[in-house]
Design a protein around this nucleic acid. Structure first.
Length: 416
RNA sequence: CGGGGUGUGGCGCAGUUGGCUAGCGCGCAUCGUUUGGGACGAUGAGGUCACAGGUUCGAGUCCUGUCACCCCGACCA
């Protein structure tokens, strides 16, 4: 993509009403726009990142037999009443609205109820199970206080997968599989080393659950990490019952701040019983389907990554989710020879399937180009100018020094 | 929801013992000079001073109400 045509611009100063680092950087670099408190739009660069995170999650969900669907954001009251979650006393984060004829609707904060209802049409026999279904959907949650940029929004993108099993052991097996899949996602996003499986409460879903917590001072959660066992306990369930259950010595636990980047629940038959999702087993008996739900906040992950991967100059995207792989910076483009060389480099990179942002702007000074490139944070940088002659300068976002190479070598590097 | 704070061109800010035509930096436009780390000069465009009411000869400035936003806390599927 040519930067001269990119409609977003960077700005030097962040809006003063954004304190969180992730929102400041993402807004300054033109990745997102704040519509209102806790509600953000995604602009070209930001959407590319969001889609890449989504794609990594999609691949890992497909790898554990997930089938992608897309449910609706508008929800009918009845299904939620059946599970007891329509009441504001049970779920205080509802956004509710009405049809013209005064019928009440909800804007989905999560999707257990509608999906359970949907599956009634497709699951009848033990032969229909197990099934694993997921989606990327916008969730609406009327948080009393949204904060921390993308970390806690009122409207946000989430991947939610739901499992439908015959027995608790079948659920348990899948639950463990999903843990591995989740950790693979975090590894691919560059968060593997600092993300830990955390024992937590199950909220309105179940007694206990597992969270995936990324260690960060910007986190809202407090967790206690057993570094030998590589497991943590959320502060909300820091008690003797849990120590005993997990066979953990509380003296060994280290307190950390962390960001919840995933949460999985064993729902059991809570929703299948409430909404009457049953199957006929081999022996002819009718049983409720055993369910689980598995969530990852996609937009929150983007915020988390921005929060963690940055330096004083700007964002530093991990390669897997950077909006582009290469930032090709052309200087002295009013010089015809340089211009031709830069255009050729852009073409060969593009033809070779390398995602490249080409700073082809003629009337922008080098200093500004470099400063903006640092802010945007694309991992690899190629500079072509009248100084580079027939070669190109290559450096990574975090490198101080660059090296003079042939464009061919750089392209090979991009594939290596 | 409790406490604290803030709303003035796109962004950051000044101006608030009531007074003249509302300023500054960044950004934007035109011209010239520049050109390897957010260049310089000149000229210029851009404002219902959050909104509504009120007090006053006169309101960005005072009063009342409303809205929005931020921070701390509580809450958080």
């Amino acid at each position: 993509m040519r930067q001269s045509r990119l409609f977003t611009k960077t700005q030097k100063e962040a809006p003063k009403d954004e304190i969180s680092k992730n929102a400041q950087l993402l807004i300054k670099a033109g990745f997102i726009n704040k519509e209102m408190a806790g509600v953000y739009s995604y602009l070209p660069l930001g959407l590319r990142v969001l889609r890449k995170i989504e794609q990594i999650i999609r691949e890992e969900m497909n790898a554990i037999d997930g089938q992608e669907i897309l449910l609706t954001a508008l929800q009918q009251k009845g299904h939620w009443q059946a599970s007891g979650r329509w009441s504001d006393d049970t779920m205080d984060i509802w956004f509710k609205t009405k049809l013209k004829n005064n019928v009440e609707l909800g804007l989905a904060p999560t999707h257990e109820e509608p999906l359970t209802n949907l599956m009634k049409k497709h699951i009848h026999s033990y032969k229909d199970l197990p099934k694993y279904v997921y989606q990327f959907q916008t969730k609406f949650r009327n948080e009393v206080r949204s904060k921390s940029g993308l970390m806690r929004g009122r409207e946000f993108l989430m991947k939610d997968l739901y499992s439908f099993s015959r027995t608790t052991s079948e659920l348990d097996e899948y639950y463990e599989k999903s843990k591995d899949a989740y950790m693979k996602v975090y590894k691919r996003l560059g968060l593997g080393e600092i993300t830990v499986v955390t024992f937590a409460s199950g909220g309105s879903f179940s007694k206990f659950s597992h969270e995936f917590q990324t260690i960060s001072e910007a986190g809202e959660d407090t967790i206690y990490v057993d570094e030998d066992k590589n497991i943590a306990i959320n502060k909300e369930v820091y008690n003797d019952e849990v120590f005993k259950l997990l066979d953990i010595d509380p003296k060994k636990l280290v307190e950390k701040k962390a960001i919840e980047v995933g949460n999985i629940f064993k729902l059991g038959t809570k929703y299948s019983e409430a909404l009457n999702l049953t199957f006929v087993d081999k022996d002819g008996s009718t049983k409720p389907v055993i369910m689980g739900s598995y969530g990852i906040g996609v937009s929150r992950l983007m915020g988390t990554i921005a929060e963690i991967f940055n330096d004083e100059k700007g964002l530093v995207w991990p390669e897997n989710i950077a909006p582009f792989k290469v930032h090709l910076v052309g200087l002295n483009l009013d010089d015809e020879d340089v211009k031709v060389q830069a255009e050729k480099a852009y073409q060969s990179l593009t033809n070779d399937g390398v995602e490249v942002l080409f700073d082809d702007r003629v009337d922008v000074t080098p200093g500004k180009k470099f400063a903006e490139a640092d802010l945007i944070g694309i991992p690899h940088r190629i500079i072509i100018s009248k100084r580079t002659n027939s070669k190109v300068e290559y450096k990574d976002r975090i490198d101080e020094e660059s090296q003079l190479l042939d464009i061919k070598n750089v392209i090979d590097k991009m594939h290596g």
